[in-house]
Design a protein around this nucleic acid. Structure first.
Lengths: 148, 148
DNA sequence: CAGTATCCCTCAAGATACTG
DNA sequence: CAGTATCTTGAGGGATACTG
């Protein structure tokens, strides 16, 4: 039934999210934006993606309300791409992917970049779903209630 | 520099994770697996994906150590696909995508499926990164330390 | 520098027929 | 039912030349 791109109308929030940021580049652009990257050529150098693709992805992220453009902080003519509030709320997604990758996609002792708290220099605590009272919740404790 | 598929060798854990589960179907299969789906035709009906694509994706997820096959719980000939421990540890990723989608990709009052704790029936608490002492951490409080 | 405009090509994905 | 085999299509993406 899924012809091509109708994930965006599915009733499942996971499917809709994937329809917006579930491609090869979008979340990497968001990651770079969290890391302070905001200019076209810096994204381009960071990812090595073709310029036309980069332009289209940035446009899509702006259209989706994840990035917005600004006139450029210095007096220069170039504009900047910065995360909106909605884009910043992708932080848990990026952190979750990062933590999973750190645990399962690197060999023992293989170096990788790490996300730390600026003020303490400490890596982030492992992020896990929890109940309203703070108890950690494992997958088996949950179920999906349709169309709540 | 990124020719085609060399995301899997990047030093950034986010990029590596995306190289494994960053396509249109993988995380939806994982979501379904969390939801108890374990048979080929059930995945197929749930996603509407073509059978050859489904077969290849399942194989890739098995190769990646995210799913494993079992002889089938009843006496039947069919095998089942179940999450490994590594696959179960994708739970925060799926939950993060779900929560972001719920907040930003549905209209006010538009119904969507919801992830609740079985024992209480309550939706999960909002999941956010935090420091080792439990303080919530926002994106601006963090920085990436290269090759730690 | 920050894109746009083309051209081309590969691969993901769909459709369908077939098999143990 | 659980796939495999084959064919076709189209979108995603790369390379490069060009523009304000």
């Amino acid at each position: 039934m899924n012809k091509r791109n109708d994930l965006g109308t599915e009733p499942c929030p996971v499917a809709r999210s994937i329809s917006v940021v579930g491609d090869r580049w979008s979340l990497l652009l968001v990651r770079d934006a969290f890391d302070g990257v905001c200019r076209f050529s810096d994204f381009q150098r960071s990812l090595g993606v073709a310029r036309n693709i980069l332009a289209e992805r940035l446009r899509r992220l702006v259209d989706a309300g994840i990035l917005e453009t600004r006139p450029g902080s210095n007096g220069g003519a170039h504009q900047e791409y910065v995360l909106t509030a909605q884009g910043q709320s992708l932080f848990p997604v990026v952190v979750a992917l990062r933590q999973w990758g750190e645990r399962h996609l690197f060999e023992q002792g293989e170096p990788h970049s790490e996300l730390v708290e600026k003020s303490t220099g400490q890596p982030l605590h492992f992020m896990a779903p929890q109940a309203a009272d703070g108890r950690p919740i494992s997958p088996g404790d949950t179920e999906v209630r349709k169309l709540a």
